[in-house]
Nucleic acid binder design. Sequence first.
DNA 1: TTTTTATATATAAAAAACTTATATATATTT
DNA 2: AAATATATATAAGTTTTTTATATATAAAAA
Lengths: 118, 118
Amino acid sequence: MESSSNEFLRGTLKTIVLKLLAEQGRMYGYEITQSVKERTNGEITLTFGALYPVLHKLEQEGFLLTVSEEVDGRLRKYYSLTPSGNESAAQKVSDFERFVEAMQILLKPNAGLSLNPI
Amino acid sequence: MESSSNEFLRGTLKTIVLKLLAEQGRMYGYEITQSVKERTNGEITLTFGALYPVLHKLEQEGFLLTVSEEVDGRLRKYYSLTPSGNESAAQKVSDFERFVEAMQILLKPNAGLSLNPI
DNA sequence: TTTTTATATATAAAAAACTTATATATATTT
DNA sequence: AAATATATATAAGTTTTTTATATATAAAAA
């Protein structure tokens, strides 16, 4: 099964959200999912069930501010970073880069691996 | 708090274990934790509470075989890959590489980020 | 000689994260 | 009129991971 959902996404959701907001200034939930999908050509897909709890948690932690606006009769909730949210964004991105470097050490091509052995 | 434990490790545990076994042939649990710690200079640390359930799950799924051996009066449980475990290892490593590429698109340096703003 | 550290596996309880399903509602397209 | 796209959100359930605990031997240090 495992659907199209990516197991590696676990633990990176906050990082993605913080970084996008740092870059874009403000975004609403639906916009975040669409942006991630488009920019990664569908490779990474955020589900609403995962995204909204993360947004609420980040807000609780003091990393996000929200402003609700009515657009075309629908309510939109814009999220933007607080100063500590901005710090956290930069920190998490650099933490992720370090983690990936460590993973590359472990996963670099070596003996023993072959997807299609003869 | 968040200890030394890495949030990004979530979702990559199976991949690490499968890849190490693909490379080393066979390893025991303790050896896996030590190997990961040494090779990543302490950047990635696997806890036993996380590792053993993963090993047992991979065994259940038919990816691992175990052989117990007594060494110096202590019991050691060696894990090695089945053919499908070997396939899974290669698959997961390449899935991870794809995921990282997608993440790099999202996290690449752009406007809005500064860890130490003036 | 006793305690601590290193080696070695494992489970249980609890917390956290994530998936899947569901609810609600408007606007646009077919 | 129905389906699709836009928009936010919660609840139930599952999975994953953390933290704590249990057990045991060997070697090193105090």
